[in-house]
Every structure is written in structure tokens, then in C-alpha cells.
Design a protein around this nucleic acid. Structure first.
Lengths: 108, 108
DNA sequence: TTTTCATATGAGCAGTTGTTCATGTGTTTA
DNA sequence: TAAACACATGAACAACTGCTCATATGAAAA
């Protein structure tokens, strides 16, 4: 599904509601850390355990776990228990879309 | 122009280059502040002077000026001199696209 | 030139953020 | 049950951010 025109979301005067502005900034803030972006790109490829992510990024389990919580609070990822381990996965395709928008600007 | 598929930007293994990951996070960081997002939504409607933006957002000229510099460094806005004043405007339509992507997630 | 207006900028500070370290919680295996 | 494994979480700390305040810069008017 293509991205909607911005005016689709906006009132006549062109300025979003106060709360939407705040939520929007909060959303981008979550993407505004390279560790979290790295995690998202990994999960874009396949669901992964915490220890796998930590190994892939050469970071401690604790650091990854903290960041996964941030991503979870933003509803960008979810997790399921599988025996002793926790498997994380992307909530939906919004992550892919948002990363695409950003990459389009970065790779110009 | 529609947003390109994410895989368009990615190598076979699905992970962007180190530098791209960093730049991507830096880009989102700029959007990750509600003052800057507010400024961008204003400039989406029309070019504006610094003092106009400050008045519209009920903030000091200094605070706005500092944030405009951040936006300028990220190449999201530019400015032109008009007599005593400086008029700021969006660099291109990327800003509109990126804000659209975010709003789609926020307003669900 | 000297003022005045509009903006830019540097220093300083409080609040926030990302990591490490130590430890807690939950599940499986011995 | 006890031990081992995988992950979550709280405290603490250094680094960073966004604002204020004071002041500098640049252009127009007096």
C-alpha cells in the first residue's frame, strides 16, 4: 500500500494536533539511535533471540535487552517465549516502510 | 514518486553499510524532537522568517535559531536573506515524505 | 557613522540517554 | 530440589541535548 499524502492526516490549517506532534517526535526518537536501527534491520531479515542479536552486533546481552524494551514500548517489536529463550519479531510492516523513507533520503 | 522497496537499498545480506546505518539514525534523530517537527510542519505550509516561527510556536528567537541550525546541518531546510530578515524553507519534498511515513504509524 | 532591527552564536545548566555492572526472574535440566 | 541457562531490570555514570542568557554579526534606517 502506497504512503498516503500528508494532507490526508492534517486539518485545514495544516498543523497536526499537539498530541500527534509529540507522538511523532517520540516515534522518530526511537529510530534515532544506531543500535536500535541495527536491531530493526536484523529483525527485518528474521525473528531472533536476544543472544543472537547481541552476538550479531557485538554488544552485551544487557545493552540489547534494554534497547529491545524501548522498541517494545514503542510497539515496533514484540516477543514470544520459546523454552528458555525469548524470540523478538517486528510488530508489523510499518518499520519496513519507515526505514525505506529514511534510506531514500540517506542514500541520495 | 512512490517509496522504493527497502531491498532496493540493501545488499544481499540485508544489512546496510555501517555509514548508512549511522546516517540513518542521525536523520531520525533530527526528526526526534517536537520543536523541530513543529518547525517542519510550519515550513510545509509556507516559507517563514525566524521571528514568525518563534511567534507561531511561542518560543524565543534564540531557541528557534538554534534548532534551525540543526535542521540546516541535516540539509532539511535552507535559508535566503531578504533585507534584514532570513527566510527559511524546506530543501525538498523528502521532509514531506518522511513526515507522511511517521504520521501513518502515529495516527493508526 | 551611529542607531536599530533581525538573526546567529557561545557558554552554561538541567534534564535525558545509552551503556555497564550487579542482581533478579523464569524456565529447563540434572 | 538444586544448578544452569537465558533474559530482564535497577542503579549509577559519562555523554549528549535543548533551552536560556548574554552578546556578536549583518543589513537597513536615521
Amino acid at each position: 500500500m502506497p504512503i498516503k499524502e500528508l494532507r490526508h492526516w492534517l486539518p485545514e490549517d495544516g498543523m497536526p494536533k499537539e498530541e500527534e506532534l509529540y507522538d511523532l517526535a517520540e516515534l522518530y526518537k526511537v529510530f534515532g539511535d544506531s543500535t536500535r536501527v541495527r536491531i530493526l534491520f536484523l529483525l527485518l531479515q528474521r525473528d531472533m533471540r536476544v543472544s543472537e542479536i547481541a552476538a550479531a552486533l557485538s554488544m552485551t546481552q544487557s545493552a540489547i535487552s534494554h534497547q529491545l524494551r524501548v522498541l517494545k514500548n514503542a510497539n515496533l517489536v514484540r516477543s514470544r517465549r520459546e523454552g528458555k529463550t525469548a524470540v523478538y519479531y517486528l510488530t508489523d510492516d510499518h518499520v519496513r516502510t519507515i526505514l525505506s523513507c529514511g534510506m531514500e533520503h540517506v542514500t541520495e
